[in-house]
Design a protein around this nucleic acid. Sequence first.
DNA 1: CCTGCCTATTGACCAACATCAACGTAATTG
DNA 2: CAATTACGTTGATGTTGGTCAATAGGCAGG
Lengths: 256, 256
Amino acid sequence: MLVNRQGKLTAVDQKYPIPLTSSNIRAACAQCSLRELCLAVGLDNEDLHKLDDFVIRRKIKRGQQIFRAGDPFEALYAIRIGFFKTDILTEEGLEQVTGFHMAGEIIGMDGISNDYHVCNATALEDSEICIMPYDQLEELSRHIKSLQQQFHKFMSREIVRDQSLMILLGSMRAEERIAAFLLNLSQRMRVRGYSASEFHLRMTREEIGSYLGLKLETVSRAFSKFHDEGLIGVQQKYIRILNAEGLKALLNHAPS
Amino acid sequence: MLVNRQGKLTAVDQKYPIPLTSSNIRAACAQCSLRELCLAVGLDNEDLHKLDDFVIRRKIKRGQQIFRAGDPFEALYAIRIGFFKTDILTEEGLEQVTGFHMAGEIIGMDGISNDYHVCNATALEDSEICIMPYDQLEELSRHIKSLQQQFHKFMSREIVRDQSLMILLGSMRAEERIAAFLLNLSQRMRVRGYSASEFHLRMTREEIGSYLGLKLETVSRAFSKFHDEGLIGVQQKYIRILNAEGLKALLNHAPS
DNA sequence: CCTGCCTATTGACCAACATCAACGTAATTG
DNA sequence: CAATTACGTTGATGTTGGTCAATAGGCAGG
Protein backbone atom coordinates (compact mmCIF):
# COMPACT_ATOMS: atom_id res chain seq x y z
CA MET A 1 0.00 0.00 0.00
CA LEU A 2 1.29 3.40 -0.87
CA VAL A 3 -0.18 5.38 1.96
CA ASN A 4 -1.02 4.57 5.53
CA ARG A 5 -4.21 5.63 7.20
CA GLN A 6 -2.94 9.13 7.77
CA GLY A 7 -2.38 9.53 4.08
CA LYS A 8 1.37 9.83 4.50
CA LEU A 9 3.41 8.35 1.73
CA THR A 10 5.12 5.24 2.97
CA ALA A 11 6.88 4.28 -0.23
CA VAL A 12 7.87 5.84 -3.50
CA ASP A 13 4.62 6.95 -5.05
CA GLN A 14 4.49 4.71 -8.06
CA LYS A 15 1.04 5.86 -9.01
CA TYR A 16 2.37 9.24 -10.01
CA PRO A 17 1.81 10.69 -12.50
CA ILE A 18 -1.75 9.46 -12.64
CA PRO A 19 -1.99 6.84 -15.36
CA LEU A 20 -4.28 8.02 -18.11
CA THR A 21 -4.91 4.57 -19.40
CA SER A 22 -6.48 2.84 -16.41
CA SER A 23 -9.76 3.28 -14.60
CA ASN A 24 -10.78 6.17 -16.78
CA ILE A 25 -14.48 6.71 -17.27
CA ARG A 26 -16.18 9.12 -19.57
CA ALA A 27 -17.81 11.84 -17.50
CA ALA A 28 -21.57 12.20 -17.42
CA CYS A 29 -22.14 15.84 -16.58
CA ALA A 30 -25.84 15.64 -17.38
CA GLN A 31 -26.32 13.09 -14.60
CA CYS A 32 -23.87 14.64 -12.17
CA SER A 33 -25.29 15.79 -8.86
CA LEU A 34 -22.77 18.62 -8.81
CA ARG A 35 -24.00 20.06 -12.08
CA GLU A 36 -25.14 23.22 -10.35
CA LEU A 37 -21.93 23.77 -8.40
CA CYS A 38 -19.52 22.97 -11.16
CA LEU A 39 -18.51 24.51 -14.49
CA ALA A 40 -21.66 23.08 -16.04
CA VAL A 41 -23.98 25.60 -14.39
CA GLY A 42 -26.51 26.83 -16.86
CA LEU A 43 -25.64 24.51 -19.71
CA ASP A 44 -28.42 22.73 -21.57
CA ASN A 45 -28.34 19.01 -22.23
CA GLU A 46 -26.84 19.27 -25.66
CA ASP A 47 -23.95 21.36 -24.38
CA LEU A 48 -23.46 19.06 -21.43
CA HIS A 49 -22.89 16.19 -23.80
CA LYS A 50 -20.20 18.16 -25.61
CA LEU A 51 -18.44 18.44 -22.28
CA ASP A 52 -18.83 14.72 -21.69
CA ASP A 53 -17.03 14.08 -24.94
CA PHE A 54 -13.67 14.94 -23.50
CA VAL A 55 -14.03 15.05 -19.73
CA ILE A 56 -12.61 11.99 -18.01
CA ARG A 57 -13.59 10.79 -14.59
CA ARG A 58 -10.93 9.33 -12.32
CA LYS A 59 -10.63 7.87 -8.83
CA ILE A 60 -7.81 9.23 -6.70
CA LYS A 61 -6.60 7.52 -3.53
CA ARG A 62 -5.75 9.34 -0.36
CA GLY A 63 -2.22 10.65 -0.53
CA GLN A 64 -2.11 10.53 -4.30
CA GLN A 65 -1.23 13.68 -6.19
CA ILE A 66 -3.00 14.99 -9.28
CA PHE A 67 -0.19 17.30 -10.30
CA ARG A 68 3.01 18.69 -8.85
CA ALA A 69 4.81 22.00 -9.04
CA GLY A 70 6.77 22.09 -12.26
CA ASP A 71 4.51 19.66 -14.12
CA PRO A 72 3.42 20.80 -17.56
CA PHE A 73 -0.05 22.20 -17.49
CA GLU A 74 -2.51 20.09 -19.44
CA ALA A 75 -5.88 20.09 -17.76
CA LEU A 76 -8.10 21.51 -15.08
CA TYR A 77 -9.55 19.19 -12.48
CA ALA A 78 -13.04 19.35 -11.04
CA ILE A 79 -13.49 17.61 -7.74
CA ARG A 80 -16.47 15.26 -7.85
CA ILE A 81 -15.99 13.53 -4.53
CA GLY A 82 -13.44 14.06 -1.80
CA PHE A 83 -11.07 16.58 -0.38
CA PHE A 84 -7.77 18.01 -1.61
CA LYS A 85 -5.05 20.34 -0.50
CA THR A 86 -2.82 22.44 -2.72
CA ASP A 87 0.57 23.44 -1.47
CA ILE A 88 3.87 24.97 -2.49
CA LEU A 89 7.33 24.06 -1.34
CA THR A 90 9.13 27.31 -0.53
CA GLU A 91 12.78 27.89 -1.39
CA GLU A 92 13.77 26.88 2.12
CA GLY A 93 11.94 23.59 1.71
CA LEU A 94 8.98 24.49 3.89
CA GLU A 95 5.53 23.40 2.84
CA GLN A 96 2.95 26.14 2.60
CA VAL A 97 -0.64 25.05 2.08
CA THR A 98 -2.39 27.40 -0.34
CA GLY A 99 -5.86 25.92 -0.22
CA PHE A 100 -8.25 23.15 0.79
CA HIS A 101 -10.68 22.08 -1.89
CA MET A 102 -14.00 20.28 -1.83
CA ALA A 103 -16.50 18.79 -4.25
CA GLY A 104 -17.54 21.17 -7.02
CA GLU A 105 -14.34 23.18 -6.91
CA ILE A 106 -11.83 23.35 -9.72
CA ILE A 107 -8.10 23.13 -9.25
CA GLY A 108 -5.17 23.63 -11.56
CA MET A 109 -5.91 27.14 -12.77
CA ASP A 110 -2.53 28.29 -11.50
CA GLY A 111 -1.02 26.42 -14.44
CA ILE A 112 -2.60 28.49 -17.19
CA SER A 113 -0.32 31.49 -16.88
CA ASN A 114 2.99 29.76 -17.50
CA ASP A 115 2.03 26.37 -18.94
CA TYR A 116 3.26 24.59 -15.86
CA HIS A 117 1.83 24.15 -12.40
CA VAL A 118 3.23 26.10 -9.49
CA CYS A 119 1.68 24.01 -6.73
CA ASN A 120 1.02 20.40 -5.79
CA ALA A 121 -2.47 18.98 -5.47
CA THR A 122 -2.87 16.07 -3.06
CA ALA A 123 -5.95 14.07 -2.09
CA LEU A 124 -6.59 14.12 1.66
CA GLU A 125 -9.14 11.33 1.33
CA ASP A 126 -10.19 8.89 -1.35
CA SER A 127 -11.64 11.09 -4.06
CA GLU A 128 -12.92 11.31 -7.58
CA ILE A 129 -12.09 13.99 -10.11
CA CYS A 130 -13.13 15.05 -13.57
CA ILE A 131 -10.15 15.77 -15.80
CA MET A 132 -10.86 18.54 -18.28
CA PRO A 133 -8.10 18.78 -20.91
CA TYR A 134 -7.48 22.48 -21.18
CA ASP A 135 -7.12 22.88 -24.96
CA GLN A 136 -10.49 21.32 -25.50
CA LEU A 137 -12.10 23.26 -22.70
CA GLU A 138 -10.79 26.50 -24.17
CA GLU A 139 -12.01 25.49 -27.59
CA LEU A 140 -15.47 24.56 -26.36
CA SER A 141 -15.78 27.75 -24.33
CA ARG A 142 -15.33 29.72 -27.53
CA HIS A 143 -18.49 28.12 -28.80
CA ILE A 144 -20.64 27.98 -25.70
CA LYS A 145 -21.09 31.41 -24.22
CA SER A 146 -22.43 30.26 -20.88
CA LEU A 147 -19.51 27.87 -20.47
CA GLN A 148 -17.12 30.71 -21.18
CA GLN A 149 -18.84 32.92 -18.63
CA GLN A 150 -18.92 30.21 -16.04
CA PHE A 151 -15.26 29.50 -16.52
CA HIS A 152 -14.37 33.15 -16.09
CA LYS A 153 -16.44 33.31 -12.94
CA PHE A 154 -14.55 30.34 -11.52
CA MET A 155 -11.22 32.01 -12.17
CA SER A 156 -12.44 35.25 -10.67
CA ARG A 157 -13.81 33.44 -7.67
CA GLU A 158 -10.38 31.96 -7.08
CA ILE A 159 -8.91 35.48 -7.16
CA VAL A 160 -11.46 36.71 -4.66
CA ARG A 161 -10.90 33.68 -2.45
CA ASP A 162 -7.15 34.26 -2.46
CA GLN A 163 -7.69 37.89 -1.54
CA SER A 164 -9.83 36.97 1.44
CA LEU A 165 -7.03 34.76 2.61
CA MET A 166 -4.58 37.63 2.15
CA ILE A 167 -6.74 39.72 4.43
CA LEU A 168 -6.95 36.94 6.95
CA LEU A 169 -3.17 36.51 6.90
CA GLY A 170 -2.49 40.21 6.89
CA SER A 171 -4.82 41.45 9.55
CA MET A 172 -6.26 38.76 11.80
CA ARG A 173 -4.89 37.32 15.01
CA ALA A 174 -4.47 33.64 15.64
CA GLU A 175 -7.84 32.94 17.20
CA GLU A 176 -9.68 35.00 14.64
CA ARG A 177 -7.99 33.10 11.84
CA ILE A 178 -9.01 29.79 13.30
CA ALA A 179 -12.58 30.89 13.95
CA ALA A 180 -12.78 32.15 10.37
CA PHE A 181 -11.34 28.89 9.12
CA LEU A 182 -13.90 26.77 10.98
CA LEU A 183 -16.80 28.95 9.89
CA ASN A 184 -15.63 28.83 6.30
CA LEU A 185 -15.39 25.04 6.35
CA SER A 186 -18.79 24.81 7.98
CA GLN A 187 -20.32 27.06 5.35
CA ARG A 188 -18.86 25.05 2.51
CA MET A 189 -20.14 21.82 4.03
CA ARG A 190 -23.62 23.31 4.26
CA VAL A 191 -23.62 24.35 0.59
CA ARG A 192 -22.83 20.77 -0.33
CA GLY A 193 -25.64 19.33 1.72
CA TYR A 194 -23.51 18.01 4.56
CA SER A 195 -23.92 18.91 8.18
CA ALA A 196 -22.54 22.36 8.86
CA SER A 197 -22.30 21.70 12.57
CA GLU A 198 -20.23 18.54 12.71
CA PHE A 199 -17.59 17.17 10.42
CA HIS A 200 -14.25 15.44 10.22
CA LEU A 201 -11.24 17.52 9.45
CA ARG A 202 -9.32 15.88 6.66
CA MET A 203 -6.11 17.72 7.39
CA THR A 204 -3.64 17.77 10.27
CA ARG A 205 -3.11 20.63 12.71
CA GLU A 206 0.14 21.32 10.94
CA GLU A 207 -1.60 21.70 7.57
CA ILE A 208 -4.18 24.01 9.10
CA GLY A 209 -1.39 26.05 10.63
CA SER A 210 0.50 26.21 7.37
CA TYR A 211 -2.62 27.44 5.61
CA LEU A 212 -3.32 30.07 8.26
CA GLY A 213 0.24 31.23 8.80
CA LEU A 214 0.44 29.73 12.29
CA LYS A 215 2.34 26.96 14.04
CA LEU A 216 0.60 23.70 14.79
CA GLU A 217 0.84 24.34 18.54
CA THR A 218 -1.04 27.58 18.14
CA VAL A 219 -3.79 25.81 16.22
CA SER A 220 -4.03 23.14 18.88
CA ARG A 221 -4.17 25.71 21.67
CA ALA A 222 -6.92 27.66 19.94
CA PHE A 223 -8.97 24.49 19.46
CA SER A 224 -8.56 23.70 23.15
CA LYS A 225 -9.53 27.23 24.16
CA PHE A 226 -12.65 27.22 21.97
CA HIS A 227 -13.47 23.82 23.41
CA ASP A 228 -13.14 25.08 26.99
CA GLU A 229 -15.33 28.05 26.15
CA GLY A 230 -18.03 25.79 24.79
CA LEU A 231 -17.75 27.17 21.27
CA ILE A 232 -16.82 23.88 19.67
CA GLY A 233 -16.42 20.22 20.46
CA VAL A 234 -13.06 18.72 19.57
CA GLN A 235 -12.09 15.08 19.51
CA GLN A 236 -9.04 14.76 17.35
CA LYS A 237 -10.24 15.50 13.84
CA TYR A 238 -13.92 15.33 14.69
CA ILE A 239 -15.29 18.84 15.16
CA ARG A 240 -18.69 20.03 16.30
CA ILE A 241 -19.67 23.67 16.01
CA LEU A 242 -21.62 24.32 19.21
CA ASN A 243 -21.88 28.10 19.08
CA ALA A 244 -21.46 29.53 15.61
CA GLU A 245 -22.54 32.98 16.76
CA GLY A 246 -19.84 32.94 19.38
CA LEU A 247 -17.26 32.13 16.74
CA LYS A 248 -18.53 34.91 14.49
CA ALA A 249 -18.33 37.33 17.40
CA LEU A 250 -14.61 36.66 17.60
CA LEU A 251 -14.19 38.06 14.11
CA ASN A 252 -15.81 41.39 14.67
CA HIS A 253 -14.13 43.24 17.47
CA ALA A 254 -10.55 42.94 16.42
CA PRO A 255 -8.24 45.00 18.64
CA SER A 256 -5.48 44.85 16.04
CA MET B 1 -8.43 70.73 -6.10
CA LEU B 2 -9.71 67.41 -4.95
CA VAL B 3 -6.51 65.95 -3.64
CA ASN B 4 -3.42 67.41 -2.09
CA ARG B 5 0.06 66.41 -3.11
CA GLN B 6 -0.04 63.26 -1.04
CA GLY B 7 -3.09 62.10 -2.92
CA LYS B 8 -5.28 62.39 0.15
CA LEU B 9 -8.83 63.39 -0.55
CA THR B 10 -9.38 66.91 0.75
CA ALA B 11 -12.98 67.27 -0.33
CA VAL B 12 -15.85 65.07 -1.38
CA ASP B 13 -14.62 63.33 -4.48
CA GLN B 14 -16.92 64.76 -7.06
CA LYS B 15 -15.14 63.09 -9.91
CA TYR B 16 -16.45 59.72 -8.84
CA PRO B 17 -17.74 57.71 -10.55
CA ILE B 18 -15.52 58.55 -13.46
CA PRO B 19 -17.56 60.46 -16.03
CA LEU B 20 -17.83 58.46 -19.22
CA THR B 21 -18.66 61.47 -21.31
CA SER B 22 -15.60 63.63 -20.86
CA SER B 23 -11.99 63.26 -21.91
CA ASN B 24 -12.60 59.85 -23.43
CA ILE B 25 -10.37 58.89 -26.28
CA ARG B 26 -10.61 55.83 -28.48
CA ALA B 27 -7.72 53.53 -27.67
CA ALA B 28 -5.04 52.81 -30.23
CA CYS B 29 -3.68 49.44 -29.28
CA ALA B 30 -1.72 49.09 -32.49
CA GLN B 31 0.35 52.12 -31.62
CA CYS B 32 0.56 51.43 -27.90
CA SER B 33 4.04 50.94 -26.50
CA LEU B 34 2.64 48.47 -24.00
CA ARG B 35 1.27 46.21 -26.69
CA GLU B 36 3.61 43.42 -25.67
CA LEU B 37 2.84 43.65 -21.95
CA CYS B 38 -0.90 44.03 -22.22
CA LEU B 39 -3.80 41.86 -23.32
CA ALA B 40 -2.91 42.59 -26.92
CA VAL B 41 0.13 40.30 -26.93
CA GLY B 42 0.20 38.28 -30.10
CA LEU B 43 -2.69 39.98 -31.86
CA ASP B 44 -2.28 40.99 -35.49
CA ASN B 45 -3.18 44.45 -36.71
CA GLU B 46 -6.66 43.55 -37.81
CA ASP B 47 -7.52 42.12 -34.42
CA LEU B 48 -5.94 45.07 -32.66
CA HIS B 49 -8.34 47.36 -34.46
CA LYS B 50 -11.29 45.31 -33.26
CA LEU B 51 -10.08 45.97 -29.74
CA ASP B 52 -9.74 49.67 -30.49
CA ASP B 53 -13.38 49.74 -31.45
CA PHE B 54 -14.58 49.55 -27.88
CA VAL B 55 -11.61 50.27 -25.65
CA ILE B 56 -11.64 53.77 -24.21
CA ARG B 57 -8.62 55.61 -22.94
CA ARG B 58 -8.97 57.83 -19.86
CA LYS B 59 -6.81 60.05 -17.71
CA ILE B 60 -7.08 59.51 -13.97
CA LYS B 61 -5.79 62.02 -11.42
CA ARG B 62 -3.90 61.07 -8.30
CA GLY B 63 -6.31 60.10 -5.57
CA GLN B 64 -9.12 59.36 -7.99
CA GLN B 65 -10.76 55.95 -7.89
CA ILE B 66 -11.64 53.81 -10.88
CA PHE B 67 -14.07 51.62 -8.99
CA ARG B 68 -15.08 50.92 -5.46
CA ALA B 69 -16.13 47.86 -3.51
CA GLY B 70 -19.80 47.23 -4.19
CA ASP B 71 -19.82 48.93 -7.58
CA PRO B 72 -21.45 46.94 -10.36
CA PHE B 73 -18.86 45.25 -12.49
CA GLU B 74 -18.79 46.60 -16.02
CA ALA B 75 -15.28 46.65 -17.34
CA LEU B 76 -11.68 45.66 -16.88
CA TYR B 77 -9.04 48.36 -16.75
CA ALA B 78 -5.59 48.18 -18.29
CA ILE B 79 -3.08 50.60 -16.84
CA ARG B 80 -1.36 52.55 -19.59
CA ILE B 81 0.54 55.04 -17.46
CA GLY B 82 0.81 55.41 -13.73
CA PHE B 83 0.46 53.52 -10.52
CA PHE B 84 -2.55 52.18 -8.62
CA LYS B 85 -3.38 50.45 -5.39
CA THR B 86 -6.29 48.12 -4.77
CA ASP B 87 -7.63 47.77 -1.27
CA ILE B 88 -10.48 46.37 0.79
CA LEU B 89 -12.11 47.86 3.83
CA THR B 90 -12.42 45.08 6.41
CA GLU B 91 -15.50 44.68 8.59
CA GLU B 92 -13.75 46.57 11.37
CA GLY B 93 -13.12 49.47 9.05
CA LEU B 94 -9.44 48.80 8.53
CA GLU B 95 -7.92 49.27 5.13
CA GLN B 96 -6.06 46.32 3.72
CA VAL B 97 -4.08 46.89 0.54
CA THR B 98 -4.38 43.89 -1.77
CA GLY B 99 -2.07 45.03 -4.54
CA PHE B 100 0.03 47.69 -6.21
CA HIS B 101 -0.35 47.89 -9.97
CA MET B 102 1.80 49.31 -12.73
CA ALA B 103 1.62 49.96 -16.46
CA GLY B 104 0.58 46.92 -18.47
CA GLU B 105 -1.33 45.31 -15.63
CA ILE B 106 -5.07 44.74 -15.63
CA ILE B 107 -7.31 45.43 -12.68
CA GLY B 108 -10.94 44.71 -11.98
CA MET B 109 -10.95 40.95 -12.50
CA ASP B 110 -12.24 40.48 -8.96
CA GLY B 111 -15.58 41.76 -10.24
CA ILE B 112 -16.26 38.96 -12.70
CA SER B 113 -17.32 36.37 -10.16
CA ASN B 114 -20.21 38.25 -8.58
CA ASP B 115 -20.91 41.08 -11.00
CA TYR B 116 -19.71 43.65 -8.50
CA HIS B 117 -16.29 44.72 -7.35
CA VAL B 118 -14.96 43.62 -4.00
CA CYS B 119 -12.12 46.12 -3.78
CA ASN B 120 -11.35 49.77 -4.46
CA ALA B 121 -8.87 50.87 -7.09
CA THR B 122 -7.15 54.20 -6.46
CA ALA B 123 -4.54 56.06 -8.51
CA LEU B 124 -1.40 56.79 -6.50
CA GLU B 125 -0.16 59.19 -9.19
CA ASP B 126 -1.62 60.83 -12.26
CA SER B 127 -2.36 57.95 -14.56
CA GLU B 128 -3.99 56.78 -17.74
CA ILE B 129 -6.10 53.69 -18.20
CA CYS B 130 -7.79 51.78 -20.99
CA ILE B 131 -11.35 50.85 -20.14
CA MET B 132 -12.38 47.53 -21.63
CA PRO B 133 -16.13 46.97 -21.31
CA TYR B 134 -16.41 43.38 -20.21
CA ASP B 135 -19.32 42.18 -22.32
CA GLN B 136 -17.56 43.22 -25.46
CA LEU B 137 -14.24 41.83 -24.33
CA GLU B 138 -15.87 38.47 -23.62
CA GLU B 139 -17.60 38.56 -26.98
CA LEU B 140 -14.42 39.39 -28.86
CA SER B 141 -12.44 36.74 -27.03
CA ARG B 142 -14.86 34.15 -28.36
CA HIS B 143 -13.75 35.08 -31.84
CA ILE B 144 -10.06 35.71 -31.37
CA LYS B 145 -8.35 32.68 -29.95
CA SER B 146 -5.14 34.44 -28.99
CA LEU B 147 -7.10 37.14 -27.16
CA GLN B 148 -8.95 34.46 -25.25
CA GLN B 149 -5.71 32.71 -24.33
CA GLN B 150 -4.06 35.93 -23.31
CA PHE B 151 -6.98 36.88 -21.14
CA HIS B 152 -6.93 33.53 -19.39
CA LYS B 153 -3.23 33.90 -18.77
CA PHE B 154 -3.80 37.28 -17.16
CA MET B 155 -6.39 35.87 -14.80
CA SER B 156 -4.16 32.93 -13.96
CA ARG B 157 -1.23 35.24 -13.39
CA GLU B 158 -3.30 37.13 -10.88
CA ILE B 159 -4.02 33.87 -9.07
CA VAL B 160 -0.34 32.99 -8.99
CA ARG B 161 0.55 36.48 -7.83
CA ASP B 162 -1.95 36.29 -4.99
CA GLN B 163 -0.56 32.94 -3.96
CA SER B 164 2.96 34.31 -3.76
CA LEU B 165 1.65 36.98 -1.48
CA MET B 166 -0.07 34.35 0.64
CA ILE B 167 3.29 32.63 1.04
CA LEU B 168 4.95 35.89 1.91
CA LEU B 169 2.29 36.65 4.51
CA GLY B 170 2.17 33.14 5.85
CA SER B 171 5.82 32.31 6.18
CA MET B 172 8.14 35.30 5.99
CA ARG B 173 9.39 37.56 8.73
CA ALA B 174 9.19 41.30 8.61
CA GLU B 175 12.56 42.01 7.03
CA GLU B 176 12.17 39.24 4.53
CA ARG B 177 8.81 40.61 3.47
CA ILE B 178 10.23 44.05 2.93
CA ALA B 179 13.26 42.78 1.04
CA ALA B 180 10.94 40.73 -1.16
CA PHE B 181 8.73 43.74 -1.70
CA LEU B 182 11.60 45.96 -2.80
CA LEU B 183 13.03 43.31 -5.10
CA ASN B 184 9.61 42.74 -6.63
CA LEU B 185 9.11 46.42 -7.31
CA SER B 186 12.60 46.70 -8.72
CA GLN B 187 11.99 43.77 -11.03
CA ARG B 188 8.74 45.20 -12.32
CA MET B 189 10.39 48.55 -12.96
CA ARG B 190 13.08 46.82 -14.99
CA VAL B 191 10.55 44.98 -17.14
CA ARG B 192 8.97 48.32 -18.00
CA GLY B 193 12.25 49.88 -19.01
CA TYR B 194 12.70 52.03 -15.92
CA SER B 195 15.69 51.95 -13.64
CA ALA B 196 15.56 48.91 -11.42
CA SER B 197 18.01 50.42 -8.97
CA GLU B 198 16.36 53.69 -8.10
CA PHE B 199 12.75 54.77 -8.01
CA HIS B 200 10.15 56.73 -6.14
CA LEU B 201 7.74 54.82 -3.99
CA ARG B 202 4.25 55.98 -4.80
CA MET B 203 2.75 54.67 -1.59
CA THR B 204 3.16 55.51 2.09
CA ARG B 205 4.83 53.34 4.70
CA GLU B 206 1.40 52.60 6.04
CA GLU B 207 0.21 51.29 2.67
CA ILE B 208 3.31 49.15 2.33
CA GLY B 209 2.70 47.81 5.81
CA SER B 210 -0.92 47.09 5.09
CA TYR B 211 0.06 45.20 1.97
CA LEU B 212 2.73 43.18 3.79
CA GLY B 213 0.79 42.53 6.98
CA LEU B 214 3.03 44.81 9.04
CA LYS B 215 2.69 48.08 10.91
CA LEU B 216 4.12 51.24 9.43
CA GLU B 217 6.71 51.51 12.21
CA THR B 218 8.04 48.09 11.32
CA VAL B 219 8.36 49.10 7.68
CA SER B 220 10.18 52.25 8.65
CA ARG B 221 12.54 50.38 10.95
CA ALA B 222 13.38 47.83 8.28
CA PHE B 223 14.12 50.59 5.77
CA SER B 224 16.41 52.24 8.30
CA LYS B 225 18.15 48.99 9.07
CA PHE B 226 18.71 48.19 5.39
CA HIS B 227 19.97 51.72 4.97
CA ASP B 228 22.44 51.36 7.84
CA GLU B 229 23.65 48.08 6.39
CA GLY B 230 24.29 49.70 3.04
CA LEU B 231 21.71 47.56 1.25
CA ILE B 232 19.59 50.48 0.10
CA GLY B 233 19.50 54.24 0.09
CA VAL B 234 16.40 55.81 1.58
CA GLN B 235 15.31 59.42 1.42
CA GLN B 236 11.64 59.54 2.12
CA LYS B 237 10.01 57.90 -0.86
CA TYR B 238 13.13 57.89 -2.99
CA ILE B 239 14.77 54.47 -2.87
CA ARG B 240 18.03 53.25 -4.29
CA ILE B 241 18.87 49.56 -4.38
CA LEU B 242 22.57 49.47 -3.53
CA ASN B 243 23.04 45.75 -2.96
CA ALA B 244 20.40 43.62 -4.59
CA GLU B 245 22.32 40.44 -3.82
CA GLY B 246 22.35 41.34 -0.16
CA LEU B 247 18.59 41.76 -0.23
CA LYS B 248 18.14 38.43 -1.96
CA ALA B 249 20.32 36.78 0.63
CA LEU B 250 17.85 37.85 3.29
CA LEU B 251 15.20 35.74 1.64
CA ASN B 252 17.05 32.47 1.59
CA HIS B 253 18.10 31.51 5.08
CA ALA B 254 14.85 31.89 6.89
CA PRO B 255 15.09 30.61 10.45
CA SER B 256 11.33 30.32 10.70
C1' DC C 1 6.37 83.06 5.94
C1' DC C 2 3.81 80.85 9.10
C1' DT C 3 0.41 77.23 10.28
C1' DG C 4 -1.33 72.81 10.11
C1' DC C 5 -1.58 68.30 8.41
C1' DC C 6 0.31 64.22 6.85
C1' DT C 7 4.16 61.33 6.84
C1' DA C 8 8.26 59.33 8.64
C1' DT C 9 11.61 58.13 12.24
C1' DT C 10 13.00 56.45 16.60
C1' DG C 11 12.73 54.77 21.40
C1' DA C 12 10.68 52.23 25.34
C1' DC C 13 7.72 48.75 26.53
C1' DC C 14 4.78 44.74 26.01
C1' DA C 15 1.96 40.88 24.20
C1' DA C 16 1.14 37.45 20.89
C1' DC C 17 2.89 33.83 19.01
C1' DA C 18 6.97 30.84 18.09
C1' DT C 19 10.13 27.72 19.95
C1' DC C 20 11.62 23.98 22.70
C1' DA C 21 10.39 20.11 25.17
C1' DA C 22 7.81 16.48 27.37
C1' DC C 23 4.12 13.54 27.26
C1' DG C 24 -0.24 11.28 25.63
C1' DT C 25 -2.95 8.90 22.13
C1' DA C 26 -4.52 6.60 17.93
C1' DA C 27 -3.54 3.70 14.39
C1' DT C 28 -0.45 0.68 11.78
C1' DT C 29 3.04 -2.86 11.30
C1' DG C 30 5.70 -6.80 12.19
C1' DC D 1 0.76 -8.13 21.34
C1' DA D 2 4.55 -5.12 21.34
C1' DA D 3 6.80 -1.73 18.76
C1' DT D 4 6.61 2.05 15.84
C1' DT D 5 5.04 6.17 13.79
C1' DA D 6 2.37 10.07 13.14
C1' DC D 7 -0.40 13.20 15.36
C1' DG D 8 -2.04 16.04 19.13
C1' DT D 9 -1.84 18.47 23.67
C1' DT D 10 0.20 21.23 27.11
C1' DG D 11 3.72 23.85 29.69
C1' DA D 12 7.87 26.94 30.11
C1' DT D 13 10.46 30.34 27.93
C1' DG D 14 12.01 33.65 24.34
C1' DT D 15 11.73 36.74 20.29
C1' DT D 16 9.47 39.33 16.88
C1' DG D 17 6.88 42.76 15.85
C1' DG D 18 2.98 45.49 17.73
C1' DT D 19 1.70 49.46 20.69
C1' DC D 20 2.27 53.89 22.62
C1' DA D 21 4.54 58.11 22.46
C1' DA D 22 7.57 61.89 21.27
C1' DT D 23 9.79 64.42 17.58
C1' DA D 24 10.82 66.12 13.12
C1' DG D 25 10.37 67.08 8.19
C1' DG D 26 7.80 68.02 3.86
C1' DC D 27 4.26 70.20 1.57
C1' DA D 28 -0.24 72.88 1.01
C1' DG D 29 -2.76 76.76 1.82
C1' DG D 30 -3.74 81.10 3.73
